[in-house]
């Protein structure tokens, strides 16, 4: 199908301040239980005083094209949705944790009600034509929801000519999160 969607994210770490607004917005949007989260923030500092660099990253499920969680799920609860995201069918999930062990990004947790849970890329919001909760809230505009089958101009511009990477590409997972590195120079 020509107009099939393939959603993921472009995340601009140059502007992210690690405030965690995305984490809290997700928690209230998706009623994530106390003590858990679907997204989290990594603040990575490198170097020695006073020559330091920093990158802030809002991380979550990478909605892999070749997702180990789907491969290893014995009940087919974890599956690919039409729009290119990876979803969990709660009624099929037995909470066996095979997917938790398989995920190279540590994106999943077992919900206190007994099923595996993770970022859904706010499936319910995308369906209504809305951005995800974390994208909507971010004060820095670090997060961009992108349909990689038809990337908008803004996303293309953001990525063009910049250092962009994906995490653990060598694992062959085909992650759908693209990171604009904080090491890009101002103006680059």
């Amino acid at each position: 199908m020509a107009n099939k969607k393939n959603y993921g994210m472009v995340i601009d770490t140059r502007v992210c301040v690690g405030c965690s607004a995305c984490v809290y917005a997700c928690k209230s949007e998706n009623a994530v239980p106390e003590g858990y989260c679907r997204d989290w923030v990594v603040q990575e500092t490198k170097g020695n005083f006073p020559k330091l660099t920093m990158e802030n990253r809002s991380e979550r499920c990478q909605h892999c094209e070749n997702a180990p969680c789907v491969t290893y799920c014995p009940t087919r609860a974890s599956h690919y949705a039409e729009d290119g995201t990876v979803q969990i069918n709660r009624s099929l999930c037995t909470g066996c944790k095979a997917c938790l062990a398989a995920c190279p990004y540590d994106a999943r947790y077992i919900h206190p009600d007994g099923f595996a849970d993770k970022c859904s890329l706010c499936h319910h919001r995308i369906e209504q034509g809305l951005k995800t909760a974390c994208v909507s809230v971010c004060p820095t505009g670090s997060l961009h929801l992108v349909d990689f089958n038809d990337p908008d101009e803004e996303a293309q511009k953001l990525m063009a000519g910049r250092i962009v990477y994906r995490q653990k590409e060598h694992a062959g997972t085909g992650p759908s999160l693209f990171w604009i590195s904080a090491s890009n120079k101002p103006g680059a």
């Binding site: 140059r14 502007v15 301040v17 405030c19 004060p139 820095t140 505009g141 101002p186 103006g187 680059a188």
Partner: peptide, 20 residues
């Protein structure tokens, strides 16, 4: 800024960074 999350200021600083 960034630890002080003064919303609009942080929005504008980010805008500035994007513009170089």
């Amino acid at each position: 800024f960034g630890e002080n999350m003064h919303n609009t200021a942080v929005q504008e600083i980010s805008e500035g960074i994007r513009r170089g």
